[in-house]
Design a protein around this nucleic acid. Structure first.
Lengths: 187, 187
DNA sequence: TTCTTAATTGACTAATCACTCAACAAATGT
DNA sequence: ACATTTGTTGAGTGATTAGTCAATTAAGAA
């Protein structure tokens, strides 16, 4: 398997488990089952690894949010899919999601937020949301706020469903979750 | 001024600014304007400092949430104060709040979450919320979920109001914020 | 005042850690 | 086949850093 990928995976696990400061690069390469030196073949520095990891996860997340969207016709249906994509990804990738949350609260994320590919996804997402706002399907709030609130609600879900995983199958719960979200957004 | 306090303040600032892993203890003592050695007089290790910082901030936050609650009569008024206390504190202490967010997403927080004083505050908060649930003032969800969702919504606010601070004075906005929260919680 | 304890300093040390590099292996191209 | 690039290793290095400690000062008690 691709060693770069192995390294990123190992790093995600250890960073969330121990925190950035308590995870030496040697631990990462050990966890990944590769030599210590190879890490610096794929990543210039430790900070570079961290930045690349952030970008890669953020890209995966933002891509998944828009996933299968064209298969739905109605606007409300699209919005609902947007939302469920978002929290399904978070639940299926809780480690990665936790890393995002952790890193987003550091100024270090400023270094990296302006990455072109992420900006592109945001813009796509942004025009879509703007369309919904124009159609008065949702409240007129700025995109940052909307993303942040989505993340906020999803974080609650992830926390909750990590504790009670069986609830995730519950159709009533899913419906409630959606209502909660939409209540929050509708004009 | 108390040097222990100075150290904790400096640490908060630097941790949020640079992240835990990029903040040496020497930088903390320098920022605090004290000698390098004194840090280890007040804190056994760097991790001990981090843990103590977390507990101290969490204590301050949970205390402030319950602040002035006895001055309000109606249940709904109390709930509203609970909420506004919570986000006012977060906005007035955004550095501390960001540190909490950052650290809560690390397993390191497990070491420290069971601190008796924090648990005590949670219990107080918990019985209060249980009362509201019994009175059917709010939905019957578990406390973890409720706290998490509150944090989630507040995080959105903090993100938003950091960008547009002038909105904070806006009465309409405050009213909307409350409605959003209550919509989310009412049965 | 004198004695005892606590606070404070900063040079020092032992350990850790990010990162290098020379050597080798594998793949790729010609 | 040979040459060239690319991937991989792990021991080694220099810098950084967490944490110590002997010495000094300040505070409190008697």
């Amino acid at each position: 398997m691709d060693k770069r990928e192995l390294l990123l995976e190992a790093a995600t696990k250890l960073f969330v488990e121990r925190g950035l400061h308590a995870t030496p690069t040697s631990a990462i390469s050990k966890e990944a089952g590769v030599s210590a030196g190879i890490l610096f073949h794929y990543f210039k520095t430790k900070d570079d690894l961290i930045d690349k990891l952030y970008v890669s996860i953020k890209k995966e997340y933002t891509s998944y949010i828009l996933h299968d969207l064209e298969k739905v016709n109605s606007d409300l249906g699209k919005l609902r899919l947007l939302w469920s994509n978002s929290w399904n990804w978070a639940l299926d990738n809780s480690l990665k999601y936790k890393f995002l949350m952790q890193f987003d609260n550091t100024s270090a994320s400023e270094r990296v937020k302006n990455h072109p590919e992420i900006i592109a996804k945001y813009e796509m997402f942004g025009t879509l949301i703007q369309e919904y706002i124009n159609k008065e399907l949702i409240k007129n709030v700025d995109l940052t706020f909307l993303m942040a609130s989505m993340m906020g609600l999803i974080t609650s879900m992830v926390t909750y469903l990590t504790q009670f995983p069986e609830k995730r199958q519950d159709q009533v719960f899913i419906e409630q979750a959606w209502e909660m979200y939409y209540n929050y957004l509708k004009p």
